[in-house]
């Protein structure tokens, strides 16, 4: 083995050890690295109790209710398995829509109601022009056979 080969073997070995260490560390911190918990995880008791945490999911269609003061809103976050009712008082981000992703930070009370202090919209990875979106919406409407 020439010194040059030895150096390359050292570099390769070092990188492999480093990758293994990183994998183990990330694995150990798995639960701390999640940005939010899904309603199913909350129902299973995985979310921290008595502490603020984030929930993430879709805003259920038709669940958004605005209070007369114009700032307080109530909606349901769902992952299509479990639901969590959320109350929030503040300005909602532009991308906040029914049927779209949302991440809310706050606390869960004993009755399973979530009071949010911050609401973030989670954008999905789909980028499409309004015409395409319109076509998708029309298809949904046609499926529901609602005549205007």
């Amino acid at each position: 083995m020439k010194p040059r080969h030895k150096r390359f073997a050292l570099i390769g070995g070092g990188l492999a050890v480093l990758a293994l260490a990183a994998a183990l560390v990330l694995n150990a911190f798995q639960s701390n690295l999640v940005f939010f918990f899904t309603p199913t995880q909350v129902a299973a008791g995985e979310a921290p109790k008595g502490k603020a945490f984030r929930i993430g999911g879709l805003v259920r269609d038709g669940s958004l209710k605005r209070q007369p003061d114009g700032l307080t809103v109530q909606f349901i976050v769902t992952d299509t398995e479990k639901d969590i009712p959320v109350a929030y008082s503040g300005i909602l981000p532009d991308l906040f829509r029914e049927g779209k992703g949302v991440v809310a930070q706050g606390k869960l009370d004993e009755n399973g109601h979530f009071t949010a202090t911050e609401v973030l919209a989670k954008h999905d990875e789909n980028y499409m022009p309004p015409e395409a979106q319109h076509a998708v919406d029309e298809a949904h409407k046609a499926a529901r056979t609602v005549q205007p």
Partner: peptide
């Protein structure tokens, strides 16, 4: 690997891009 606020990749080598 994790739940993130950042959206997933729109363009990847393994599937067709979810983008106009």
């Amino acid at each position: 690997w994790w739940n993130t606020l950042h959206q997933g990749a729109s363009v990847s080598l393994t599937r067709s891009p979810s983008m106009a």
